[in-house]
């Protein structure tokens, strides 16, 4: 669960008191895990600022950012990167133009992990996974792994950024344990005991299984390998139930710079990925139609406040006209005040 508590952010670029601009004014927002939220609002209403405060690009003046009830306000952007995938409006922003597709993917694969100065950056096993992932995109990128990203079109780069924002190697069991202990709502000691009460028997069972499979002479080499993989998957599944850090995907007008056809393709791709992985997603868009078509919750920002928040069926009934009416109402209110 992601939560903004009483967040205020003001910009003062010139240092002049009259130029103070309030981007967010005591905003409260709760996003349950698994929600796909579309965010609309006029320019300067605080949509992008919200997103930047979530990822840690900007620090709020006051208020808190909570992830699974843990205060992450003081965490730096690179520390939070493990939990957030960010796609920017500018297609050039999310990828390294002078690096090849595979290098970009390798970097994204290690998001939120330590980078070792002694291990070679490319792995054969990773490459297979990248090809498999890229094939789903149907952009022909899987044959161009060694090509520089700079020569690709905006749509391809944005699709690649989307993949980089959603793909991340599975956290190791150690990371799962650490995240569970810090982010679960229970006391740390209780959480540790709970984790270990599952982890230790599971590990022992897996080890016993492994040795029995190895000793079994009736199995061929291939069957043995399959059985071993299956045993590991079972063990892995037991640990994964503690994996709290479901990825959160932040899309900041990510189709605004693309032509209509490519934009549609990227949006459909986004929807597919989000549904497959059940990701918590926040999508800023200026296209009302997209805001209504995708997602199961809609939020409207206006001059640093959330003025409209609908979910589920209520959202499904909304039309573009309704939204425009809301905008007009908000404008009028602002004038009256």
């Amino acid at each position: 669960m992601l939560e903004l508590k009483n967040v205020t952010k003001t910009f003062n670029l010139t240092g002049n008191k009259e130029d103070l601009r309030v981007a967010l004014d005591h905003v409260n927002l709760q996003i349950e895990s698994g929600e796909f939220v579309t965010i609309i609002g006029s320019n300067g209403s605080g949509k992008s600022t919200t997103m930047n405060i979530l990822t840690g690009v900007l620090k709020p003046d006051s208020g808190q950012v909570l992830l699974n009830n843990v205060d992450i306000t003081k965490m730096d952007e690179h520390q939070r990167a493990a939990y957030f995938g960010h796609v920017f409006q500018d297609p050039m922003m999310g990828t390294c133009g002078e690096m090849s597709v595979i290098e970009n993917l390798e970097i994204a694969y290690r998001r939120g992990r330590k980078h070792s100065p002694f291990l070679w950056g490319f792995r054969k096993s990773h490459k297979k996974e990248f090809i498999r992932e890229l094939k789903r995109f149907d952009l022909g990128l899987e044959d161009r792994l060694n090509q520089k990203v700079g020569v690709m079109s905006g749509g391809q780069r944005q699709a690649l950024t989307l993949l980089m924002a959603t793909m991340r190697n599975k956290p190791t069991h150690k990371t799962v344990k650490k995240d569970y202990i810090t982010f679960c709502e229970k006391d740390h000691e209780v959480a540790r005991k709970e984790f270990e009460s599952v982890y230790k028997p599971a590990l022992a069972e897996y080890k016993a299984n492994k040795s029995s499979i190895r000793k079994d002479k009736s199995l061929s080499f291939k069957e043995k390998r399959e059985a071993l993989a299956k045993a590991y998957d079972e063990f892995d599944k037991k640990i994964r139930q503690f994996d709290l850090t479901k990825q959160i995907l932040l899309l900041d007008e990510h189709t605004a710079a693309l032509d209509p056809k490519t934009a549609k393709k990227v949006l459909e791709l986004t929807d597919k990925i989000v549904k497959e992985n059940q990701m918590t997603t926040l999508m800023i868009t200026h296209n009302m139609k997209d805001a209504l078509t995708y997602g199961n919750r809609l939020i409207m920002f206006h001059t640093g406040h959330i003025i409209f928040d609908v979910r589920g069926e209520e959202k499904a009934k909304l039309t573009v006209e309704d939204l425009l009416k809301k905008f007009d109402e908000a404008d009028q209110k602002a004038i009256e005040m």
């Binding site: 952007e77 999310g94 390294c96 992990r113 070792s116 950056g121």
Partner: peptide, 29 residues
């Protein structure tokens, strides 16, 4: 040559090319 092909070397190169991207990928620039 070896160092800039390792995980950390790649992180350094990413920092030089696109710092914003490097940060959002969890690299301490």
């Amino acid at each position: 040559y070896f160092f800039f092909g390792t995980e950390y070397g790649m992180a350094i190169r990413a920092t030089g090319i696109n710092e914003k991207m490097a940060k959002s990928q969890g690299i301490n620039t």
